[in-house]
Amino acid sequence: MASPTDTLRAKTNTELQFFVDNPGFYHADLVEAAQRELRRRDVAPAAALPPPAPYSPAEAEPAPTPATRRWPLLAGLLVLGAAGTGWLWHTRTPVTTPANRPGQLSPDSLRLESVRAHPLPSFDTDAIVAAQLVRVPTSEKQEAQALRQFRELGRRFWSAETQTEFLTNQAHAGQVSPMFAEQALLVRENWRAWNKAVVYSYRFGPTMQGQFERMAQAASSQQHILANMPGLLPGRKFLTDKEMLARDAEVQDWLAGLRKTSPVTGRPYRVTVLHFQ
């Protein structure tokens, strides 16, 4: 049976440095052994990566940043060791055996495996807002402050809206990621950036004000949908939940007043038509 030392010597410098960079994932003896092996090869191990700084809402103002770059948690879950390939490195949880009790190393505990990543896509919110502004009369866009404020609100709205649509469309297509619940939490943080901005008063022209109100209504329902969707995924209960269906129809109608087609799917938003008898 190969010894832990033999196993470490079979690793590449990059793999050994991975152990050093992620001491929280491994037994301290393994991290020290990886450092010794790097020094034996005359390769000075780089310092372990520092833990991510805690998030401060004040640092995110005034403009939100995409969830995939704002949150160290998502980075740790989705892009650890991906190196642009769409695959992750992670460790297999070792099984406790007589040869692998606490304080002892087993070659199996050093095994690295690859799993498929499920990153959230990013969307060009500036282009989406620019297209939305085409519907606004030139006279309303002459007020520089109002235009600047509207653009910022639009960026915050579509940053959260596009990723919400991406997740809910995955659910409707039966292609839910194993990371759905975690990703939903991260997208809800984007919605909080929108919520912080709408507490202020704005002096928009009638068209901008109408669009702003539509965004606010859609944002309210989308946050409700996103909060409840993970619990309704088993058995695809969200397809028959009356409140979820009603809110989805409302969102589609409100978004149709902002643009004809979804920037996520390219499909037209559904307009609610009322029939009176």
Rank of each mutant, 00 (worst) to 15 (best):
L239C: 09
W254S: 04
A131Y: 10
T93F: 02
E213L: 11
V136N: 13
Q211P: 03
T7P: 01
T138A: 15
A130D: 14
E37T: 13
A83M: 10
L120Y: 02
D108W: 09
S56M: 07
A197I: 04
P98S: 08
D108L: 14
T7W: 06
R192P: 02
Q277K: 09
S262G: 06
A53T: 06
S139W: 06
P66N: 07
W158F: 15
G103T: 09
R259H: 12
V31G: 08
N13L: 03
R116W: 05
A246D: 15
P178G: 12
A117I: 03
Q183L: 10
R267A: 11
R41A: 01
N13W: 03
V187Y: 09
V31D: 02
A63I: 06
S221E: 14
E243H: 08
A33L: 07
A58E: 11
L153S: 04
G103W: 04
D108G: 15
N22E: 14
I225W: 00
R155Y: 02
P54K: 10
I128N: 09
D29M: 07
P66Q: 02
G86Q: 04
S201C: 08
R151I: 10
L147F: 01
V199F: 14
K196Y: 15
A53N: 01
R135H: 02
L30K: 05
A184T: 00
N195F: 15
V43Q: 15
G235H: 05
Q142L: 11
N22V: 05
V115W: 10
P119N: 00
A75E: 13
P54Q: 12
